[in-house]
Simulated scan of single mutants.
Amino acid sequence: MVLVVGIVLIATTLRAPITGIAPVLEQVIGHFNLTASQAGLLTTLPLIAFAIASPLAAMLAKRLGLEISLLIALIFIGLGCFSRVFNFQSVLFIGTGIIGVGIAIGNVLLPSLIKRDFPQKVAIMTSIYVLSMGIVGGGFSALVIPLAEFNEFGWQISLALFSIVVVIAILFWLPQLNQKTPPTQNLVQTKANAKIWHYALAWQVTFYLGCNSLFTYIIVGWLPSILIESGHSAEQAGVLHGVFLIATAVPGLILVPLLAKLKDQRAPAVGIALLAAISSLSLFYFPSLAFLFTLIVGFCSGACFILGLSFISYRTQNSQQAAALSGMGQCFGYSLAAFGPMLAGFLHTQIGDWSGAVWLCAAGNLICATVGFWCGRNTQLPA
Rank of each mutant, 00 (worst) to 15 (best):
V2I: 09
V4K: 13
V5R: 14
G6L: 06
T12K: 02
T12C: 08
T13N: 15
I18N: 05
T19A: 12
G20C: 12
G20V: 08
I29M: 15
N33D: 15
G40T: 09
L42H: 11
T43K: 13
T44W: 05
T44K: 06
P46G: 13
P46E: 12
I48A: 12
F50C: 07
I52S: 03
I52H: 06
A53R: 08
A57M: 00
L60N: 10
K62H: 13
R63D: 13
L64G: 06
L64S: 10
G65L: 07
S69P: 05
A73G: 05
I75L: 15
G78F: 09
G78Y: 10
C81E: 10
F82C: 04
R84L: 08
V85C: 07
F86S: 02
N87W: 12
N87A: 12
F93N: 01
I99E: 12
G100L: 01
G102S: 07
L110K: 15
L110R: 14
L110V: 14
P111R: 08
I114H: 00
F118S: 00
S127T: 01
I128Y: 10
V130S: 14
G134S: 03
S141Q: 14
L143H: 02
V144Y: 11
P146C: 10
E149V: 10
E152P: 02
Q156M: 14
I157E: 15
I164V: 14
A169W: 00
I170P: 00
L174S: 03
L174C: 01
P175C: 05
N178L: 14
T181Q: 12
N212V: 09
F215N: 12
T216Q: 10
I219L: 05
I219C: 00
I219Y: 01
G221E: 00
I226T: 04
I228S: 12
E229A: 07
G231W: 03
S233L: 09
A234W: 09
A234H: 10
E235Y: 14
Q236T: 15
F244V: 04
L245Y: 09
I246V: 13
T248G: 06
P251Q: 05
P251H: 05
G252P: 07
L255H: 02
V256R: 14
P257K: 11
P257D: 12
P257T: 07
L262M: 11
K263R: 11
D264A: 03
D264F: 02
A267T: 13
A267C: 09
A269P: 04
G271R: 03
L275W: 11
A276N: 10
S279K: 11
S282E: 11
F284Y: 13
L289M: 13
L289T: 10
A290F: 00
F293L: 04
L295Y: 10
V297R: 00
G302C: 04
C304M: 13
I306F: 08
I306T: 06
Y314C: 09
T316G: 09
G327A: 08
G327W: 08
G329D: 07
C331S: 15
F332S: 04
G333I: 03
Y334I: 03
A338T: 05
M342Y: 08
G345V: 01
L347Q: 01
H348A: 04
W354G: 00
W359S: 14
G364W: 01
A369M: 03
G372Q: 05
G372R: 02
T379S: 11
P382T: 11
